[in-house]
Simulated assay, not measured.
Amino acid sequence: MEFTKITEQASVHNDLEKKSISELLHIINEEDHSVPMAIKKALPQIENAIKQVVFQLKKGGRLFYIGAGTSGRLGILDASECPPTYGVSPDLVIGIIAGGDYAIRHAVENAEDNLNQGWLDLQSHQINNNDIVVGIAASGTTPYVINALKMCNTHDIPTVSISCNPNSPLSQSSKFPIEVIVGPEVITGSSRMKAGTAQKLVLNMISTTTMIQLGKVKGNKMVDMKMTNAKLIQRGIQMLVEELQVSEQEAKSLLEKHQNVRKAIIQYKK
């Protein structure tokens, strides 16, 4: 199968600068509607990847996301939200971006073209074959990511990829490729749009499903969340009210004592 870079194909929408705000919004919204359907087609690939993620984490490994530009930022976003949401260590899900932390806010020239740096960045975390690495690149052609996965493969470290082109070099370098084909962007080549949305949704699926499988959710509640503000403390109190059928005041006392919804439930039921 020949590799086609759909993410770089010309937009089907022309003369955008001549369109009204309303017209532009309807065009973007119409295109965005295609993303969930593209993901639906990739669900079997996503499921296979998550099974391996859960397997690696259950045996003590870590989940790494690695990417450049928008893809790298999305990986860092997903990784950074796991500790407060699920109460896990910041070292369990780790996001790495080409160009380092500076690149989270700024474009770093040629960072994505560096063949060796991705593997070096992974090595700085003492990566091993208990871990699993998810390479993210809309085009599926980013050298920084591709070579990092190739090096992982040679060291028997499981690899997943998320891209938006079929049969890309990244997919070929991955043991568990995920391909979400969203088609050309509204603005030609602007893969932070539909492709970025697709990547974000897939990353949500990976981290959320994995954390549920690891026992970090009870019913549909985040019982291990870190209560870092008033909103989350109130949410924790409400969880206890509903789960234990106690008053709000008693729930508040339990939460203050145990500082964790799950611990409060366990101790109360004892």
Rank of each mutant, 00 (worst) to 15 (best):
185 E>G: 01
8 E>G: 07
114 N>R: 13
202 V>N: 01
1 M>K: 14
23 E>A: 15
41 K>F: 09
112 E>W: 03
73 R>V: 04
161 S>N: 05
179 E>H: 00
266 I>N: 10
183 G>A: 12
240 L>W: 00
153 N>H: 11
262 R>F: 10
128 N>T: 14
51 K>L: 14
57 L>I: 06
28 I>H: 11
151 M>T: 08
43 L>K: 08
178 I>L: 05
19 K>D: 03
149 L>A: 07
244 L>R: 05
149 L>G: 02
214 L>K: 04
206 I>H: 00
168 S>A: 11
202 V>S: 01
238 Q>F: 08
122 L>V: 06
194 K>E: 02
38 A>L: 02
9 Q>L: 12
37 M>Y: 14
72 G>Q: 03
92 L>P: 05
63 L>P: 01
176 F>K: 04
200 K>E: 07
94 I>N: 02
158 P>H: 00
241 V>D: 08
67 G>P: 03
128 N>A: 10
215 G>W: 07
248 E>F: 09
134 V>G: 04
28 I>W: 06
230 A>Y: 08
234 Q>G: 07
210 T>K: 03
205 M>G: 08
53 V>Q: 01
260 N>A: 11
195 A>G: 06
247 S>C: 07
235 R>C: 02
26 H>S: 14
118 G>D: 04
48 N>L: 14
45 Q>H: 07
124 S>W: 01
45 Q>C: 08
13 H>G: 09
195 A>Y: 02
206 I>P: 00
248 E>Q: 15
135 G>W: 01
120 L>Q: 13
218 K>V: 13
18 K>S: 15
191 S>L: 02
163 S>K: 01
253 S>V: 14
69 G>D: 01
155 H>F: 11
231 K>D: 06
130 N>F: 14
178 I>Q: 02
233 I>M: 10
33 H>R: 15
215 G>K: 11
73 R>N: 05
2 E>M: 11
184 P>L: 11
268 Y>F: 15
92 L>I: 13
202 V>I: 11
144 Y>T: 07
15 D>I: 06
111 A>K: 05
174 S>I: 02
253 S>G: 08
191 S>D: 04
202 V>E: 01
10 A>G: 05
24 L>M: 14
262 R>I: 13
100 G>L: 05
72 G>K: 02
52 Q>E: 14
14 N>M: 10
190 S>D: 03
158 P>G: 00
181 I>K: 00
24 L>V: 12
101 D>A: 13
95 G>E: 09
245 Q>S: 15
129 N>R: 05
16 L>C: 08
